[in-house]
Simulated scan of single mutants.
Amino acid sequence: MTPSNRPSCKINLICGTLGAGKTTLLRHLLKQKPSDETWAIIVNEFGAIGLDGAILSSQNSASVHEIPGGCICCSAMPELQETLDTLLREYRFDRILIEPTGLSEPETLVDLLRNLKQELGAQKSVFLENIICVFAANELDPQLWQTKLSYRNLSHMADIVLLNKSDLCSDEHLKSLTDYASGLYPPKQAVVLTQQSEVDAALLKPTAKAEGLYFLNDPQTAKTTSPKQKSLHQPRRIVHESMPDHPLLLDYQQQQSRATLSYGWLFSPEAEFDWQKLHTLFEDFNNEPSVSELRRMKGVFRVGKPWMLFQWRQKQLSRELISYRKDSRIEILIAAQQTDKPFNPSDFYRGLINCLKTQDG
């Protein structure tokens, strides 16, 4: 069976905090299901008696499968694996939506889906599309978002962030949330303000932009963003410059605004980096005159089974494990002004390549 005629199934994770509106979001999405597609929903509830499955089943527009009595990220993971295996091998669903409990750790689900995709091999093409995370905007503030680990993990993992219950918030509060969201890394495809979790089902599918790099707004030059605006990452002038070919490099972009140069590299999720070599590479920022105008560096890298987030700002380097799983990527912001020793992206790229683990390492 060739890849072109192999049965395919798209999967979305609908994550979020308890009571934020995940089930309501699923109900809106089901109303928009194309008539020529078959969908399945896997609903996980921590309690022994599930209610969300009954609510969703009442719409009669999808095959609903409940996994109550534990979190599918840990104690109920065997049930999830068995359910997914059955749905993918024995049925021909066009799309499967998975709603884990609000207590979940979504990165373990992505790891499970990746392994399951490899096990299925030639039998079926499985595509993990957008991960949507729902927060209750009226229960969230930037400080809580930044300090609560579970909230950070959810937003790191998400492709789309929904700030639901926006009608219960002031414009000032919403602006504080969208301003914070504009600095999330990796950048989100969209941050959407919603009431009753009502969104367009097109958000299930990655945008063309999601296949490559997209950059954070430069905080020193970005204009004020309206709280109602969906996309928080507006493109700037792209400077086309090539990098030496490497099988694991998916994309390179250089963008320029009036005061800032942005350099970005995107690597395949198969690329594995040595975190200690990365740490040494980034520490050298403090010793290199060529990056004296460096404003900020953010990067997420696969360093084995986990991914790690590195951040450099004002000569301070930090690192932490991150729930992101899609690829490895890095963005560097440098002041766009003439210096005696300007930043050389090709030299830095060679440094990144030297941090890759070897096949036998």
Rank of each mutant, 00 (worst) to 15 (best):
residue 123 Q to C: 02
residue 113 L to Y: 02
residue 178 T to K: 11
residue 157 M to V: 13
residue 127 F to T: 15
residue 143 Q to L: 10
residue 105 E to V: 15
residue 123 Q to R: 08
residue 178 T to W: 04
residue 106 P to W: 12
residue 150 S to N: 14
residue 134 V to K: 11
residue 159 D to H: 13
residue 111 D to P: 00
residue 114 R to L: 05
residue 141 D to A: 01
residue 107 E to H: 14
residue 162 L to I: 12
residue 130 N to H: 06
residue 137 A to I: 06
residue 124 K to Y: 00
residue 164 N to C: 07
residue 106 P to H: 14
residue 172 E to I: 07
residue 164 N to H: 08
residue 151 Y to R: 03
residue 177 L to S: 11
residue 176 S to R: 01
residue 139 E to Y: 06
residue 96 I to A: 04
residue 185 Y to N: 01
residue 162 L to G: 10
residue 177 L to K: 15
residue 109 L to Y: 08
residue 107 E to F: 07
residue 160 I to D: 02
residue 126 V to I: 15
residue 149 L to H: 15
residue 160 I to K: 11
residue 117 K to S: 13
residue 120 L to M: 11
residue 161 V to Q: 05
residue 182 S to N: 08
residue 141 D to Y: 00
residue 123 Q to F: 10
residue 110 V to Y: 02
residue 107 E to L: 07
residue 132 I to V: 11
residue 145 W to Q: 13
residue 160 I to W: 07
residue 186 P to Y: 01
residue 188 K to V: 14
residue 131 I to S: 10
residue 124 K to F: 00
residue 143 Q to Y: 10
residue 122 A to T: 07
residue 157 M to C: 12
residue 177 L to W: 11
residue 128 L to R: 03
residue 183 G to D: 03
residue 122 A to V: 06
residue 191 V to Y: 05
residue 95 R to Q: 06
residue 149 L to E: 15
residue 97 L to I: 10
residue 130 N to L: 04
residue 122 A to I: 06
residue 112 L to F: 01
residue 106 P to M: 14
residue 106 P to V: 15
residue 116 L to G: 08
residue 94 D to K: 15
residue 138 N to L: 03
residue 150 S to W: 09
residue 153 N to C: 09
residue 95 R to T: 05
residue 164 N to G: 09
residue 94 D to V: 15
residue 155 S to G: 06
residue 116 L to E: 06
residue 93 F to I: 05
residue 117 K to E: 05
residue 117 K to P: 01
residue 108 T to C: 10
residue 112 L to E: 02
residue 108 T to R: 09
residue 106 P to G: 15
residue 190 A to D: 04
residue 133 C to K: 01
residue 168 L to S: 15
residue 145 W to T: 14
residue 137 A to S: 12
residue 183 G to T: 11
residue 125 S to H: 02
residue 146 Q to S: 14
residue 138 N to Q: 05
residue 109 L to N: 13
residue 118 Q to R: 04
residue 97 L to M: 11
residue 160 I to R: 11
residue 173 H to D: 03
residue 107 E to S: 14
residue 138 N to M: 02
residue 114 R to M: 06
residue 148 K to R: 14
residue 148 K to G: 04
residue 177 L to A: 13
residue 99 E to F: 04
residue 113 L to V: 10
residue 115 N to S: 13
residue 186 P to W: 03
residue 161 V to R: 07
residue 155 S to T: 11
residue 175 K to H: 05
residue 122 A to Y: 00
residue 125 S to R: 02
residue 158 A to F: 07
residue 173 H to A: 02
residue 141 D to H: 07
residue 173 H to E: 00
residue 154 L to F: 11
residue 179 D to H: 09
residue 181 A to I: 04
residue 179 D to E: 10
